[in-house]
Design a protein around this nucleic acid. Structure first.
Ligand SMILES: [Mn+2]
Ligand SMILES: [Mn+2]
Ligand SMILES: [Zn+2]
Ligand SMILES: [Zn+2]
Lengths: 148, 148
DNA sequence: ATTGTAATTGAGAATCAGTTGCAATTATAA
DNA sequence: TTATAATTGCAACTGATTCTCAATTACAAT
């Protein structure tokens, strides 16, 4: 059974006059078999672990295509590198990031999304995407941190 | 007349057992004489232009201190480098970023901030900071872009 | 004012994510 | 099957940020 995301990506590429190569297919598969967030290097290592040979360059070249096709989203820049997650089949969400343990908690609020849209409308700004990152301490880390 | 931010920074440093050096003072001054956003290199160039000699290293070492002291905020990672702005005396705000012309429009909504706080409370997440970046097209770029 | 000491500095080397040039390979439409 | 433009891996390259280290300096305690 062909996965739906293959279809989407294939059509996206076709529309741009680009090729659906085995490398791109493999990267797509690798991306979609990730449970949560990943960065380009995670992906490379995971694929190599499974014996799939793709170059770093191809990964870096393919991720922007997946991004453009809407199959993945760039989540944030942790430390100094980009993180992604696939969003096809899942909904958009924002992130709470624990500064102590690094946990990333998804957050979705319809109300919040609507409010943002309204604010943009008011500014006459055509909103395409957004990233909201809230940093602080998760429940566990906050209770452990001594302060009452 | 001594600037208020000098005082704040000095006290911050003292509390941490760090020194208020002339380099740090100069960097602080450079930061606060910037109108809007800046990145480390902007700052370096501007200071050199004024004949103030500080090393790149000192700038990169001082910015995190200013961040920690609450005098500046990290705005976002454009391209691949960090951007900052001083927020002392000004309020916190989020950003609308035009993908075409690069314009950055400040956005503040009390309602939005409150909503975020409530959401965090609901998740029992101790929120310290957040960054909201909305990307799309500004009024001017959107009307120019042909699509109706 | 002098001194002791830990913090700081500048310069350049090092690091590291991400990009690029290029020759060999491959998808795909005709 | 062929023509052709797109793609690949590799290694060299960027450019931002961090680090190393010897020389300097702030500043608290004499
Ligand atoms: Mn997520
Ligand atoms: Mn701003
Ligand atoms: Zn945590
Ligand atoms: Zn614009």
């Amino acid at each position: 059974m062909k996965r739906m995301e293959d279809r989407v990506f294939r059509e996206f590429l076709q529309k741009k006059g680009l090729k659906f190569t085995k490398e791109r297919a493999a990267i797509l598969k690798g991306v979609f078999s990730a449970r949560g967030h990943f960065d380009p290097d995670d992906l490379l290592i995971k694929m190599r672990g499974k014996g799939i040979r793709v170059s770093k360059a191809s990964i870096y070249r393919t991720l922007p295509l997946l991004l453009e096709s809407g199959l993945i989203e760039q989540v944030l820049k942790v430390d100094k590198h980009a993180h992604y997650e696939h969003t096809f089949g899942r909904g958009h969400h924002d992130h709470l990031i624990c500064l102590k343990c690094g946990k990333v908690i998804p957050l979705y609020s319809r109300k919040l999304e609507k409010l943002q849209e309204n604010l943009c409308r008011k500014e006459k700004f055509k909103c395409l995407t957004h990233t909201l990152e809230i940093r602080g301490y998760c429940l566990r880390c906050n209770s452990k941190s001594g302060l009452s």
